[in-house]
Nucleic acid binder design. Structure first.
Lengths: 133, 133
DNA sequence: TAAGTGTATTAATGCAAATAATACAGTTGA
DNA sequence: TCAACTGTATTATTTGCATTAATACACTTA
């Protein structure tokens, strides 16, 4: 089975971050489970018409985060789900994300109640209608 | 009165975006109101030990968004609050922000309910405890 | 008119993303 | 064993963008 990556070159977000993001999402939503193998660096690079180094960098960072485990000669596999960050670190990251979110939406002049309502809907949708692999 | 900008050079976020963000936030929270005058390009550049062009770029983008109005020879002023974007555009931006938010938080493995609870608290806090000018 | 506004232009610097071309080391299966 | 895969590391180069810099210009106001 081949994962359907959606990459936009020229986007302000670097390609390697886009790759990371999609894999992180697939892991978070259960599309990718422990033990699943990711495409090889070279195969994915060819599939996305991208340099192998770019894919390698994405894999490298995911490995550093502990989300995947790579074994030279075998491949990259989804790691066992475990608590990677401390409770404090997780809340810190959540705070940053929340601040950024409000910075991006406050000036839209949408009532907080409506934003929260839509967030709840989007959130449940995010974890159920995960993108097809 | 002089606004208390908090700029971090070397941050992944460009300086001109940091300036934009703070002004947007002050407008959203009511700290800056219609008609208020912003510091001059040169004055703010000196205050932040930053190049005037950097400040000018921030002001230029805020002007393009319609949040401020600039008049050569007079200065830059907070514009009248009005609907800058169409309803569709506002919801599109909200959707993008929500997606990015979940991409940043999903892998933290924090229950959706708790995220929403914290978001509500952070949201009300965002609009009440606005940063001092 | 002088001193202050915003704006525009051009050049130079620095940094990071991305490509490219290799080389190396571990694993697997014929 | 060996060929064909894996991931990893290194170096060089290109590219684009943020930033600084130095001006110049046009408008406004006292």
């Amino acid at each position: 089975m081949s994962l359907r990556f959606d990459i936009t070159p020229g986007s302000p977000q670097p390609i390697y971050e886009q790759i990371e993001g999609q894999i992180r999402r697939w892991i978070a939503t259960g599309t990718l489970k422990e033990g699943d193998q990711l495409p090889s660096v070279r195969a994915l690079a060819e599939q996305l018409t991208v340099n192998p180094n770019t894919v390698a960098r994405a894999y490298s960072e995911l490995t550093a985060e502990g989300l995947v485990a790579s074994h030279a000669g075998r491949g990259v596999f989804i790691a066992a789900r475990r608590q990677i960050y401390s409770e404090e670190e997780r809340l810190r990251r959540l705070s940053c994300a929340m601040k950024r979110f409000f910075d991006e939406t406050a000036f839209l002049d949408i009532p907080l109640a409506e934003i929260l309502r839509r967030l709840e809907a989007a959130g449940t949708d995010y974890f159920t209608h995960s993108p097809k692999p």
